[in-house]
């Protein structure tokens, strides 16, 4: 039973993190009774679990995730959606509208066209099949206003914060509606473009400094300072 790093130290792939009776968590792998890091990130020891909080990842869909995507193409019974992931997502008509769809008469493009942005939920995904999306829930569907920010999907937990502290701070201070897609795409819509600009600035700062501590306080201070300059 031995650990080789301190909590929240930066580790690189191949670093030996712990030896002995430990459980390999996210972004680690076990060879024999040794646990190694498999991604660049911050190591975290929690009881018996050793995990690495990655500094950069790709988005792998998971059922239940809320994502923001762009319609890329359409075929006879649905749309193909780019969700910032190695896998293209499918949105079937039956997962988009409540009433029956008549292929001969109805026009898919009248609902969603190529280039439209949608807020959707992943309903199914496994290794053999492309992810399926649904927009048949309140609040989901075509995005009509606001601005989009793209960050690494690894930074999303930091933007939400512990018990949503960070995101609530952002919403309150910038007066913007902020919708976070688990795939690293964030929708910001506020009363004026200036409000949105401030929120985007704050989100970009969080993404850049995600691996430092005391971030919530610094973001609060930054927003107040920026607001002070304007008023």
């Amino acid at each position: 039973m031995k650990i080789y790093f301190e909590n929240r130290q930066i580790v690189t792939p191949g670093d030996l993190l712990a030896e002995g009776d430990y459980v390999a968590g996210n972004n680690t792998h076990k060879i024999g009774n040794k646990i190694y890091a498999s991604r660049l990130g911050l190591v975290e020891y929690q009881g018996k679990t050793v995990q690495v909080i990655a500094l950069n990842t790709v988005y792998i869909p998971s059922p239940g995730d809320q994502v923001i995507g762009r319609i890329e193409d359409l075929n006879i019974n649905g749309w193909i959606v780019d969700i910032n992931s190695p896998y293209k997502a499918l949105l079937r008509v039956s997962d988009a509208i409540n009433k029956p769809f008549r292929q001969q008469k109805d026009d898919l493009t009248s609902l969603l066209d190529v280039g439209d942005l949608i807020l959707a939920k992943v309903i199914a995904f496994d290794r053999t099949m492309d992810p399926l999306l649904s927009i048949r829930e309140a609040g989901l569907g075509k995005i009509t206003h606001g601005q989009i920010v793209k960050v690494s999907p690894a930074k999303i937990p930091r933007i939400i914060g512990r018990k949503a502290s960070m995101i609530n701070l952002l919403k309150k201070e910038t007066e913007c509606k902020i919708t976070v897609g688990q795939n690293g795409i964030i929708l910001v819509s506020g009363p004026t473009p200036d409000h949105e600009k401030l929120a985007i600035l704050a989100i970009e700062k969080i993404a850049q400094e995600a691996h430092t501590s005391g971030l919530t306080d610094r973001i609060a201070e930054m927003i107040r300072r920026e607001k002070g300059v304007k008023s």
Partner: peptide, 11 residues
């Protein structure tokens, strides 16, 4: 590869 966030056994 490590910078891209691709999981690796070692550098």
């Amino acid at each position: 590869l490590a910078d891209a966030g691709i999981p690796m056994r070692d550098l």
